[in-house]
Nucleic acid binder design. Structure first.
Lengths: 208, 208
DNA sequence: CTAACTTGCATCATTGGTGTTGCAAGTTCT
DNA sequence: AGAACTTGCAACACCAATGATGCAAGTTAG
């Protein structure tokens, strides 16, 4: 489940179409990475930024960006796929299906935060992205739903809470926490605490 | 506090520069409103939509849009100011400073949701907007902080919760709830419940 | 009714971003 | 070292969006 393909980003201009060709040189690989990271940095600040600005942030010429990515759309798609792969890895690494629900919740949260802090823009583009990205996100969403089911069964989550709403709140909190700069583990602790206990005092009925 | 100016949107092309001119005709006023509402509708779906698409959605010619708004930037600014005014009115109407904290929280939430459901895009542009918009949002944020302070004093919110984090969670939940289509009052009820109690069961220690 | 206002349409100018190409200079891999 | 690869640079074509203007036809308000 959740297979991770070993190749680089698919939306990047295709290489090694025939087996007889030499592999891509390592410096080119580094350039691709630099462009992807620069794109994330620049676009997260200004989604309408030009290829020129992205190239400048990556420390390469604009033409180089166009050599590696056929179009602006392809670049964004590549970013999204790259981030999605790291996202899937982050979820996998937490073993959310086999670990006790509460532990899994912490682990997944911390791991995902690590990715989302660095790839916030790319991940926000997921709903607009291609079928492969959509598939992975849908799969993660299913596992998330399953995790909440187990949490409910274990008495960690209340029975009267709509699972879909719980998931949306969880995603919203992750999105919010990812805006912070700080230790992902500490952020995850506070996040899960807020998700489960809220910010209110125990007895609310007497006030108000 | 929180004065609401009676004039139409400031970013709109200026009228009545000299006192001797006749007032803007009512049909023109309706056109401006139609454009603003169309812009919200179109841009919330696609932030990169063209003036052409906005004009089409508003049922007017593209040139008419340009007659009313000097530039695309001016149009977005006008939307933001318009939404910000409704936002401020929504907060004001809830009397968050004088009503008991818990009641105020419900009222503010429901009122703000009503505005945010219709003007989600425009409100999301607030951080990028001009000083007037920034001022209003800062003022609302202050009142929100004060509300949480009172809630804490009343024993509604726990003492160990960082007020700034509480506010951010509150905003995030409003943003999430505004994506829903449904009765704002029902949404507000669920939102406040989640904010204060979370989604977890009472006794968490034994599970996990 | 009439003057003033508003709009649609056709038209044009401008601009910023996108994408391409050829070539010289530099780098990597074998 | 030498072949293959990569990059920067300069130049070019292209296009979609923006913004402006004049005019005829329709609408509003007094």
């Amino acid at each position: 489940m959740m297979q991770v393909r070993g190749e680089a980003v698919r939306s990047c201009i295709v290489w090694r179409v025939s087996q007889g060709t030499r592999a891509r040189r390592s410096d080119a690989e580094r350039t691709v990475r630099a462009i992807l990271e620069a794109a994330e940095r620049v676009l997260s600040r200004n989604p309408a930024a030009s290829m020129e600005q992205i190239a400048e942030a990556a420390g390469v010429a604009r033409t180089t960006v166009h050599r590696r990515f056929a179009s602006r759309e392809a670049l964004v798609e590549a970013m999204t796929e790259w981030a999605t792969r790291r996202f899937a890895e982050a979820v996998d690494a937490a073993n959310p299906d086999t670990t006790p629900p509460l532990v899994a919740l912490y682990q997944v949260t911390a791991n995902v935060l690590r990715v989302k802090i660095d790839w916030g823009f790319a991940m926000s583009r997921a709903p607009t992205a291609g079928p492969e990205v959509a598939r992975v996100h849908a799969e993660v969403q299913d596992r998330c739903a399953e995790l909440f089911r187990r949490a409910r069964a274990a008495g960690v989550v209340r029975d009267d809470v709509d699972p879909e709403w719980a998931r949306r709140v969880y995603y919203a909190l992750i999105h919010e926490a990812a805006q912070s700069h700080g230790d992902p583990d500490a952020l995850a602790t506070r996040l899960v605490d807020t998700l489960l206990r809220g910010v209110g005092a125990e007895r609310l009925r007497d006030a108000g």
